[in-house]
Simulated assay, not measured.
Amino acid sequence: MTKLPDREPTLRVLPLPKDLNQSGDVFGGWLMAHVDIAGSIPAIRRARGRVVTIAVNSFVFREPVFVTDLVSFYATIVREGTTSITVDVEVYSERDPMNPHVVKVTEATLTYVALDERGGKRPLPSMEGR
Rank of each mutant, 00 (worst) to 15 (best):
F59Y: 15
V71P: 00
S40F: 11
P15N: 11
I85R: 03
D36L: 08
S84N: 10
D25Q: 01
T86E: 11
L14G: 03
E63A: 05
W30K: 10
R48E: 14
I54P: 09
Q22K: 14
V67M: 13
P15E: 04
F66I: 07
Y74T: 02
S23P: 03
W30T: 02
G81V: 07
D25T: 10
F27W: 07
N57Y: 10
L20K: 01
P42C: 07
L70M: 11
V71D: 00
I44K: 07
F59W: 14
G29T: 03
G28A: 00
V51Q: 09
K18M: 05
R46L: 14
A55C: 10
I77E: 08
D25M: 02
T10N: 03
R79S: 12
F59T: 15
F73T: 12
L11A: 07
E80C: 12
A38D: 06
D69F: 02
S84F: 05
V51C: 01
T53M: 06
Q22H: 15
V65C: 03
T68C: 09
S72P: 04
N21D: 07
S40W: 09
P17A: 06
G39T: 09
S58K: 10
A55F: 08
G24E: 03
A38Q: 09
I37M: 13
P17Y: 04
F66R: 06
S58L: 14
N21Q: 11
K18D: 10
F66P: 02
R79I: 01
A55R: 12
I41Q: 09
V67A: 12
V65M: 01
V35L: 11
T68K: 08
P64T: 02
G39D: 07
R79G: 04
A43Y: 07
R48D: 10
I85K: 00
V35A: 12
R62P: 05
T53Q: 08
V60P: 04
A43K: 09
V35T: 12
A47H: 12
L20N: 03
G39C: 06
S58D: 15
F73M: 11
F66D: 06
A75G: 08
I41F: 10
V52E: 06
I44N: 11
R62M: 15
F27Y: 06
T83C: 11
D36A: 12
G29S: 02
L14P: 05
A75F: 06
S84Q: 15
V78T: 14
L16F: 08
V60T: 14
R45K: 15
H34C: 03
H34G: 04
L70A: 12
L16R: 13
V13G: 04
H34M: 14
R45T: 15
G39N: 05
T86L: 05
G81Y: 12
W30G: 02
G24S: 03
R46C: 08
G28W: 00
G24C: 04
N57E: 13
V26S: 00
